[in-house]
Every structure is written in structure tokens, then in C-alpha cells.
């Protein structure tokens, strides 16, 4: 099924959770995730299923001031 990750289309297999997707993409630490415009707390990653058409956004914190 097709989803978007940071605005770019991506094909993933069915039954993928947010944890699976982040592991596939190589994200380990230092980011936040928004699914369809809503933040997902880290605790919820393993139970958050990804559906066709979902927009996943990986936000990197900024440190500059």
C-alpha cells in the first residue's frame, strides 16, 4: 500500500506499525512523529498501525536560538 513519508510517496507492506516503519527507515532517536497532522507519543508507536494513504511526518527538533 502507498503512504507518504515527509511528503514523498512510499510503498509499504500491509500490517506495518509505526515502529516497523521507523525501524525500516533507520530512525533511532531524536525525532518526533506526526501521523496525518497529529503527534504520536513514542509509547504508542508499537500499536499504531499504518493505513493506506496515511501521511507520516518525521520532525527533527531544532536547537538554534
Amino acid at each position: 500500500m502507498m503512504i507518504t513519508v515527509n511528503g514523498e510517496s512510499r510503498k509499504i507492506t500491509a500490517e506495518t506499525t509505526l515502529s516497523d516503519l521507523l525501524a525500516q527507515l533507520g530512525y533511532v532517536k531524536g525525532f518526533a512523529v506526526a501521523l496525518n497532522g497529529e503527534f504520536v507519543p513514542r509509547t504508542d508507536y508499537p500499536e499504531t498501525g499504518i493505513r493506506t494513504g496515511d501521511a507520516v511526518e518525521i520532525l527533527t527538533p531544532m536547537q538554534g536560538g
Partner: peptide
């Protein structure tokens, strides 16, 4: 409400994140 750590539990490796 959340705290900063709820959003970003830990910092990325410093050299991966651009600084001003």
C-alpha cells in the same frame, strides 16, 4: 499538557542536527 521530552525524548546526535 506535554513537556518537551514527550515530543523529543532525547536529542539527536549533535552532529546530525544543524546549528545556526
Amino acid at each position: 499538557g506535554p513537556c518537551y521530552r514527550c515530543l523529543f525524548p532525547s536529542a539527536p546526535d549533535a552532529d546530525l542536527v544543524p546549528r545556526c
